[in-house]
Amino acid sequence: MKSPFAFLSNLSEEPRIQALKGLTLFRELSARELREVDELLHERTYQKDEVIFDEGDVGLGLFIIVSGRVKILSSHTSLQELAPEFHRGDYFGEMALFDKAQRTARAVAAEPTQIVALFRTEFFSLLERDRGVAAKILFELARTVCARSRQLITGEKHNPSL
């Protein structure tokens, strides 16, 4: 029987899950795990030049680009050089998932951009109830942090392989 509240979901489930599977952060997750994570994600659409977050904001979660492009502007030169732009499938603001520190950069949509956000407290609830899924996401995040650290050390402009 169709739920009387079906209008609350604007997309059918499977194409959504397929789309999530294509994102780097969730590539190790199974369909079942993706469905669980999907419940925690919030979709946002940004105009060209619209600010996603500002340097100095208290970060509450990370953002994953579903479509479009995001420019990063930072007063920290090294950070600005490290990751000046993010594209489809990339994610940014991941440090907010671990602590309540301020954002170190400003993120602006370089073109009409669709994003999904993963909020820190919701990620913690996932960590409490399904450590397996959370561990896979954390491992992927750790890989990215490692890659960016190496980039900082070696000064390479592209993402070096691990």
């Binding site: 919030h42 979709e43 946002r44 940004y46 619209e50 600010v51 996603i52 977050f53 904001d57 509450l60 979660g61 956000a117 909020f119 407290t121």
Partner: peptide, 15 residues
């Protein structure tokens, strides 16, 4: 409900 919140207030509303 959260989808109807403007982007600027999105994170605070989630909080």
């Amino acid at each position: 409900l959260i989808r109807s919140v403007p982007n600027a207030f999105f994170e605070k509303t989630l909080l």
